[in-house]
């Protein structure tokens, strides 16, 4: 158990290190939702850099697999229709609100941006209410 806490702590520190390095070296905020939309639109150099970041992100679990010998555990559940709807809500909401857990959560809180603090408070509250409501409704 302690072992998994140590892993978790190191993993979290690496997430922070990655976003710090992306800012100190490339001068960009490591917000995944922004990076996804940046990978889809011009100018070309930005598109390439965003795509490279996403490719790295995609390789992350594979690197983990190579070093740890197994895939990180993940449990997907719930109704498929809800999952699809959730995907669209996440995509729409993060673009409308200019950020997600990484952009507002990790980077925004780290640089103490008031906008990000407000966004994190709102999406945490919305998430808590949603989970509670789904549990109540038995979804």
């Amino acid at each position: 158990m302690l072992f998994s806490y140590v892993h978790s702590l190191i993993g979290s520190a690496l997430i922070g290190l990655a976003s710090a390095l992306y800012f100190v070296l490339d001068g960009r905020i490591a917000g995944i939702s922004g990076i996804i939309s940046g990978a889809l639109k011009p100018p070309h150099e930005d598109r390439l850099r965003n795509a490279a970041f996403l490719f790295g992100l995609f390789l992350g679990p594979i690197l983990y697999r190579m070093s740890a010998g197994g895939w990180p555990s993940a449990h997907y559940g719930g109704r498929l229709s809800l999952l699809a709807l959730a995907g669209a809500l996440v995509g729409f909401g993060t673009r409308l609100g200019s950020g997600c857990t990484s952009g507002h959560g990790v980077c925004g809180l780290a640089r103490r941006s008031p906008r990000s603090m407000a966004a994190v408070a709102v999406f945490l509250a919305a998430g808590v209410v949603t989970v509670a409501a789904m549990n109540r409704l038995g979804l």
Binding site: G93, T94, V120, A126
Partner: peptide, 11 residues
């Protein structure tokens, strides 16, 4: 936007 994201995130 944060509220909509939070709902999808929670789901």
């Amino acid at each position: 936007g944060a509220a909509v994201f939070g709902i999808g995130w929670g789901m």
